[in-house]
Design a protein around this nucleic acid. Structure first.
Length: 270
DNA sequence: ATGCACTCCTGAACGC
DNA sequence: TGCGTTCAGGAGTGCA
């Protein structure tokens, strides 16, 4: 479930304990997640010093002084556990730092991934190269207008497409569409300029709010996990079928689009 | 190029 | 109580 805000929160939490630290040990408890781990993963990491942590879309990027970048994706159920008292089931990879901290990458459903690529080749990493723009800190209006033009796919599907906007998932797409009063099934090419502008405004607002909610509850990095932000944050429409729309009180409906639930208000979202 | 169904996986929630 | 079923979803694949 981690979307952009949860990954951002995770990266911020990791930065506090990993940035500038040397990895003294890396334990693999299996040899793959969604994909096989890269060859030489452990050897390339052990002894390396972490020089920086960042995020692109839903990917966390951990750079080392060996000019490698560790790319992690939390998938559906992935989370980073700091200094676990005991290792649990699904703690698939465990990192140890030179100052005694332990970070366990736990992922029950194993939709996550771990890759290690030369930092210089990061731009050619296929999953990163295909990504659309980051939604924070920029005005998406013109980009969305161009991306939606002549598209007959539902706006919900377009926003979930990481090539259109990077980092959105099911939850925050539902939230942003409610804010912008757009029906999730609306054809991309048939959204008015005004609604696109509202959407471009809503997307970063919804994400920033979620990051703030996650960050504010992040007293101890031990709490950092993919679900934390969701549980702390109350959504406008997501998961609230039958409850009142926060804007006008009409009951929230749920439809299934390409196998995913969409929550929306049929009164104000058109 | 575009749209969409299907697949991976486990655990929580639900129904009988 | 316990079993079985359903659902959750990111991203990649494959097909029309």
């Amino acid at each position: 479930m981690p979307e952009l805000p949860e990954v951002e929160t995770t990266v911020r939490g990791l930065r506090r304990v990993l940035d500038g630290r040397r990895l003294t040990r890396v334990d693999l408890h299996r040899d793959d997640l969604r994909r096989a781990f890269p060859d030489g993963l452990v050897q390339r990491l052990v002894g390396a010093t972490i020089t920086g942590l960042s995020r692109r879309a839903k990917y966390g990027l951990i750079a080392t002084d060996r000019d490698d970048t560790l790319i992690f994706h939390l998938g559906m159920s992935g989370r980073m556990r700091l200094d676990p008292e005991v290792l649990e089931k699904h703690d698939h990879v465990v990192f140890h730092t030179d100052d005694g901290h332990v970070v366990a990458f736990n992922d029950a459903r194993r939709f996550g991934s771990l890759d290690l690529v030369p930092t210089a080749a990061l731009g050619e990493y296929p999953a990163l190269a295909a990504l659309g723009p980051e939604p924070l800190g920029v005005d998406l209006t013109a980009h969305l207008k161009a991306a939606f033009k002549d598209r007959i796919a539902p706006v919900k599907a377009l926003l979930l497409d990481q090539r259109v906007v990077a980092g959105l998932g099911n939850i925050y797409v539902c939230e942003a569409l409610n804010c912008a009063r757009i029906h999730p099934a609306r054809e991309g090419g048939k959204i008015s300029a005004a609604r696109i502008a509202a959407l471009a405004d809503a997307i970063p607002r919804v994400l920033d709010d979620a990051i703030a909610a996650g960050g504010s509850t992040l007293r101890d990095f031990a709490q950092v996990d993919g679900t934390l932000g969701y549980f702390q944050k109350s959504f406008r429409v997501y998961g609230r079928e039958g409850e009142p729309c926060p804007r006008d009180g009409h009951p929230i409906k749920r439809i299934v689009q390409s196998g995913r639930s969409s929550f929306f208000c049929s009164w104000c979202q058109r």
